Structure formats: C-alpha cells, structure tokens
Simulated scan of single mutants.
Amino acid sequence: MKKGAFLLILSFLSFHLYAQNSSQNTLTLKQTKVDASCGTCQFKLEGNTCLLAIKYKGKAYFVDGTGIDDHGDAHGKNGFCNAVRKAVVSGTIENGRFKSTSFVLKSTKK
C-alpha cells in the first residue's frame, strides 16, 4: 500500500514538473512593440533567404503567420531587408519562432 501511494505521488510530481517545462517554452505577446526586419539581412539569423523576423527583448525570432512581402517590397528603400521597422504584434513565441496573430507595421516618418 505504501509503495502504491509513493508511486502515485511520484507520478503526480513528474507530470507536474513536465507540464511546467513545456509552458516555459511559450511566451505570449499582446499588443507589444517590437523591431521588425529581415531576419537574415538585419538580425543576422541563420538562413538562405529573406524571412520576416521580430526582435523582442534583444533576441530575434523568425515570424510565422505573415510574410516579409506582405508589408511592402522587402528590398525597397524602407523595406525589411534595408531597414529595421517598428511594429505592434500579438501572438506567441514557441520553439524559437514567433507565431503571429496580429502584426501591425508602424508607418515611417517622412
């Protein structure tokens, strides 16, 4: 009986610790101001093509849910490959990538 209770408690603790580790890998952003640009050209992320990325708290993340050309010509004067822009985003950072549910690019001042 004592063995069974011990195993039950041990199982519960193991499950609890596992659940905590997986939730620490996800960070939710809600209407958060970030830098946005090409991850390979401006943020020096590894890759062979131009891909949209954000920088949050000093760390860059590739973006899923919207693309680099969805916000104008990436290679234009103020495009993501030539400039770092400001954006307000919502979504989650999971497994080293930003999963966007909202991505609003701020206009450039003239």
Results as ranks from 00 to 15, higher is better:
L7D: 07
L8G: 08
L8M: 10
I9T: 04
L10A: 11
L10Y: 05
S11T: 13
S11G: 14
F12Q: 04
L13P: 04
S14E: 03
Q20Y: 13
Q20C: 08
N21F: 10
S22H: 05
Q24K: 09
T26M: 04
L27Y: 13
L27E: 13
L29F: 06
L29E: 07
K30M: 03
K30T: 02
T32Q: 13
T32A: 08
V34C: 01
V34G: 00
D35Q: 07
T40H: 04
Q42M: 04
Q42C: 02
Q42F: 01
F43L: 02
F43G: 00
K44C: 00
K44S: 00
L45E: 02
E46G: 11
E46R: 13
G47K: 03
T49R: 05
C50Q: 06
L51T: 12
L52A: 02
A53M: 10
K55R: 11
K55D: 05
Y56S: 04
Y56I: 06
Y56M: 04
K57G: 10
K57D: 15
G58E: 11
G58M: 10
G58A: 11
K59H: 13
K59D: 12
Y61S: 04
Y61D: 04
Y61Q: 05
F62R: 14
D64G: 09
D64I: 11
G65D: 12
T66D: 13
T66W: 15
G67E: 13
D69K: 07
D70N: 15
H71M: 06
D73P: 10
H75I: 11
H75G: 08
G76E: 08
N78S: 10
G79C: 09
G79T: 09
C81T: 15
C81V: 15
N82D: 10
A83M: 13
A83P: 14
R85Y: 12
R85E: 11
K86A: 15
K86G: 14
A87V: 04
V89R: 02
G91P: 11
G91R: 06
G91A: 06
T92S: 07
T92D: 08
E94V: 14
N95P: 05
